[in-house]
Design a protein around this nucleic acid. Sequence first.
RNA 1: GGUGCGGUAGUUCAGUUUGGUUAGAAUACAUGCCUGUCACGCAUGGGGUCGCGAGUUCGAGCCUCGUCCGCACCGCCA
Length: 608
Amino acid sequence: MEPLFVVFLQSGITEKYIIKIMYRTNTCGELNLQNAGQTVTLCGWLQRSRDLGGMTFIDLRDRYGITQLVFNMETRPDLCEKARKLGREYVLQATGKVAERSNKNPKMPTGEIEILVEELNILNPAKTPPFTIEEHSDGGDDLRMKYRYLDLRRTPVMRNLELRHRIAMLTRNYLSDLHFLEIETPCLIKSTPEGARDFVVPSRMNPGQFYALPQSPQQYKQLLMVAGYDRYFQLARCFRDEDLRADRQPEFTQIDCEMSFVEQEDVLQTFEGLLKHILKEVKGLEFGAFPRITWNDAMKYYGSDKPDIRFGMKFIELNDVVKGKGFGVFDNAELVVGICAEGCAEYTRKQLDALTDFVKRPQIGASGLVYIRCNGDGSFKSSVDKFYTPEDLQRIAEHCNAKAGDLILVLCGEKMKVRKQLSELRLEMGSRLGLRKPDEFAPLWVIDFPLLEWDEETQRYYAMHHPFTAPHPEDAPLLDQPERWGDIRANAYDIVLNGNEIGGGSIRIHNRDMQNKMFHTLGFTDEKAQEQFGFLMGAFEYGAPPHAGLAFGFDRLCAILGEADSIRDFIAFPKNNAGRDMMADAPSPISNEQLDELAIRLVPQEEK
RNA sequence: GGUGCGGUAGUUCAGUUUGGUUAGAAUACAUGCCUGUCACGCAUGGGGUCGCGAGUUCGAGCCUCGUCCGCACCGCCA
């Protein structure tokens, strides 16, 4: 990085003026032996001081690094006395000569030099912080959230936010070069009941009426297509009033994109290109064409619509080889399915019990786990030896491609449920075997999602993606056959990285008849469709081009590339588990005056 | 809405299994000594509503119930 001085010069300010106005000539991360002899001024925070009696060392920290300041009792007793009184996190300005150290520290980039301080200004004293501002802080999660502005001083968090900035710039430049325009869409919009819960904002000027915050700029970006902005993107803030997770915040950022006059292949190529570009620039990794898998196959082989393909361990369906041998649990099951864990035949009883407990946890809900050990001597030991002869087990092992030394784990039950359960077990085994390395990246497209999803509770179909998603052309006729609605594929796709859904999109419906048919399928009356989506439907009558789009979860993408599990440290000011900002203590009650102005009356909790 | 784990010094934790004298450690902080440290070292010192409330008991940091808070997960997240 350029020294600060040079950056200022390049900005066109004259040198004479700079010296007068500049707090600092250099940052704390850029000085080395070549600067020896120069007089410099640095500013920063006191990271740590070491008082040796006759001399005092201070580590001065800023965003760019740490530089050591030296104070000597013999040469400047006044400054040395001053320096030894300073506390952690004091804000300092120090001027002095860059000098070669007699004892160099190879562990730090500036370790060959130090500053012989001639002038020291305390720009601001500081209270002792409640936790240490270091690479590995001694602070717990909630304390760090409460004092987030201190946590943000720590280098790991700074590096995360720098990474976020880099990915944002790479994205903007890449898409801009492809003629995409970044266009902002409103945050105060109309509430629509489909999908996630809306955050809602009362309107003072329209008493009793509310805006919603966007769950995504979906309808606006489609209107931009109607308006002829044929390539749009936005790093868009989105809001969803749902429960939080480590990788889910109530407000989050999407790389939101839409294109006109394209087919699915164009969209996939464009955004595969974007992700390849980011992976290359950030990680130095080059990829060929990303693998693609249909949703049906993803469910069949991984039990998940976002498979982690950093490792194999694909599902093997076993109905044909296990049924009819008198083991009622298998015989009565809709699906018997297993995975083969290579080299795990040595698993002890205790380890197998732990796995059984894992799948029986209420969150997963399997009723039991069957194992088959393929011993080194070619024999088998299983939890169902009573029902299966060695020859039966041999046949199952062959079906699973299991070798001597492998362990076959089998679950059974209702098809979709057991797939989901085995998916959890597969990921658990992957973790236990160290196959889910955070510095390995395995992107994947999942295509041909179902268009509709049956909801037991409300007894109706919902759009799996959203109501503007086009059906797969081959399946469109099935919209006229309600009994086949569950089989209709959509022209929808997700992009998956290391078992995380990092993006998704679809071809949109641009034809009025098709859209009407879709609303009908979803149980919307004409009036309701008109009320909810009227402005979009109206726009579509004035010449909507064929269009399609995709949105990346930007925070999640940053966290994965930052090799972290939680997105919180890639957001400057995140919310906690309960959606609270622990630093600002939001949300909070508002005054009666504010409520009156908004024409809102609160109902006491006990009346509910 | 549900499940699990946790809450003890400024901070991170031990102590809870088996209730029993003055609740410990490390680190941070303060004071003093120390001229080449870089996790400096040495000495001394201060620092506690054991989350909160109720109960059991002669006696509760420890057991029971309730409650609040944090984290992870299930449901939810078109």
